[in-house]
Write a protein that binds this DNA or RNA. Sequence first.
DNA 1: CATGAATGAGGATTCATTCAT
DNA 2: CATGAATGAATCCTCATTCAT
Lengths: 210, 210, 210, 210
Amino acid sequence: MGRSRTNPAPTAPVTARGRRTRDALLAAGRRLLETRGWPAFTPEQVAQAAGVSYGTFYTYFESKDDLLRLIVRTVAEEMFTESLVGPATADDPYTRIVESNRGYLRAWRTASRVLRLVEQGADSDDTLRRLLLEVRELYVRRGAEGLRRLQEAGLADPELDPRLTAIVLGAMVEQMAHVIYSLREPLDEDEVVNHMSKLWAAAIGLRGRP
Amino acid sequence: MGRSRTNPAPTAPVTARGRRTRDALLAAGRRLLETRGWPAFTPEQVAQAAGVSYGTFYTYFESKDDLLRLIVRTVAEEMFTESLVGPATADDPYTRIVESNRGYLRAWRTASRVLRLVEQGADSDDTLRRLLLEVRELYVRRGAEGLRRLQEAGLADPELDPRLTAIVLGAMVEQMAHVIYSLREPLDEDEVVNHMSKLWAAAIGLRGRP
Amino acid sequence: MGRSRTNPAPTAPVTARGRRTRDALLAAGRRLLETRGWPAFTPEQVAQAAGVSYGTFYTYFESKDDLLRLIVRTVAEEMFTESLVGPATADDPYTRIVESNRGYLRAWRTASRVLRLVEQGADSDDTLRRLLLEVRELYVRRGAEGLRRLQEAGLADPELDPRLTAIVLGAMVEQMAHVIYSLREPLDEDEVVNHMSKLWAAAIGLRGRP
Amino acid sequence: MGRSRTNPAPTAPVTARGRRTRDALLAAGRRLLETRGWPAFTPEQVAQAAGVSYGTFYTYFESKDDLLRLIVRTVAEEMFTESLVGPATADDPYTRIVESNRGYLRAWRTASRVLRLVEQGADSDDTLRRLLLEVRELYVRRGAEGLRRLQEAGLADPELDPRLTAIVLGAMVEQMAHVIYSLREPLDEDEVVNHMSKLWAAAIGLRGRP
DNA sequence: CATGAATGAGGATTCATTCAT
DNA sequence: CATGAATGAATCCTCATTCAT
């Protein structure tokens, strides 16, 4: 990390086999990072977990940092994608909050570990930091818009600042994902989702639920 | 061959000078950890930052881990202490919520960086992991009790599970501390405190505010 | 933080080149230990003596201790092997004693330095200590059996306890190897062998020599 | 060890208290060396074992090597002294051999550990090496003279070279001391002394015993 | 003299990266 | 492309010795 680069920049794999190897390394790297944390995230262990030889790592990645960036990008992309799923499955606003919270919680479930790992690595360059901020921003915006729409429909307290409210909501859900999935506080996911939704509905003064 | 530690474990400093040096090392270690993260937390850099020579580090700490444990303990203790400050400064329940949120936010402000750093590596040290859990538990309990009292006084929604509610509240505040102080989202502390309090008051159905 | 070994333990070399390097390291380690003693036995010096770079040491050995164990095992095995050479080359019992003493002396010549070195540090490694005891035991048993056979054939004093006698004999030869080869007392090997044999033959009351 | 000397040469203690402290350090150093081996022989541990503070070590000894030299000299002197005790307590030559062997064995009992430790320390300067050789020489000479006297009195095989015979005898006893006291082979001291004596008497063709 | 803190060179080990085959 | 060996800077830790009080 942080060494000066002298490696030849690996080119994209051209053969199918090459692509498979590369994918295996990516997957192995991510799995290691998620399950065994930063110390296990070494080129050697990644290669081994992917079932290829040590040196092969550098056939596909310029450096360890290179792989890390790619993993984070992948995780971020998944979160972007996930955030688009079923933007309005239900009619009932409360049910939409529940669904949104559940989706949000699950998105963080997958990503939380990796993202937190990166967040504190002082090594992590600014590209990553900005990427993380973008991911958060996406969710914030989505939440803010949802609230605005409710306010416009007269279903939520019109005094609340949508953006700030969404930030606070996002913080709550993100940290709960960490509490449940990483710290392993013995809580039932469904119960938490329901509770958070109930609290949130009350917090924004949601009208229109039974 | 096994080496089995022949040197005695470092003892507490006897002279004033020793105490000063030790304190300087502790402070330097904590500062480094907070400001420059894990990679900067090396005995060499800590010693240098404290203005003493390399080996002096080991006059006072058995190992790098030893110092880390002490720092985390210090941070945790500060949070315990801070949690006791002014348990009931105000009569008005809403004001109490505001004050409590402000205190909570500030407690995490100091500790958040260090505690998150440790959280990741905490796989390897159960002592620390347990300490972190205790700190969180303290805040959870305090929040749950506050809510219960409000419920008993007929001032809050009696249906809410106090513990779960407190966990969610804690998650919100802790993560907001991170968002504000580490990610440096440009938010005004007072505004955030007020907003969180307002949301929370509504969430628990607080009665008795103007 | 505990660190808990993330790198895999070194595996046996796969290529011929690897085998050569590993052998060179083993040989260099042993040579250093024999000729320049414990303080010269550092991974750095071993690597340098083997003509490879510093880190290569750890490609083949888990640690300095690991190499030491291997060396001692090698030395011990050589002694086991050597102890089997020509168990009965001569008919004449006296000649057999001479040959046995010469073999014994030479076995210790090679091993003495290394084994004594380890004997001191052996507090810390029971594996090695036991190995050393086994080597000695092997020679003791062999000597005891030889004596018993002579006694049964009516060629040696039947009153002597075979085991104790063999221990004493072993002690004599082992220490003479040290005196000659390590302390460099200027003595002729042949002369010493003959003298020891003569004394020993008389000591056990050997009959049947001219 | 082996550092260039910049220390002021400690002077001999003038006060009684000074002498006591110095003696305590010497004793502690020797005890540590004998009982816990080389790794425990550090200035710090010696000071601690002597009940004085760390720095005091250097009030009395120029260096760790300095103390080591003094210890070895002390041990050597004891062996010199011991070798003079009762040079002819008994009339009977066999009894004299027994007594001599017992004395020899015991002398090595005390010294063996320390002397072997020093023997292999490549650090140990030539002064020590020469001292060790002198100690051995003393015992060799004594043994050789004893044998010569027996030969002149017609009580021992006149063909034996006295010096070589004494060297071999010395080797046997010295190593037996090691086997018994350091390797802790479970042997009875008296039995060993008697057995060695019997063997030796036969080896030199001693006449004149019952 | 005694004390306890300070020093820093030296030693063991790790691991990201490069290289020869 | 793949492989496994080689490299060496960086890191943690030890300990003999020096120094300030």
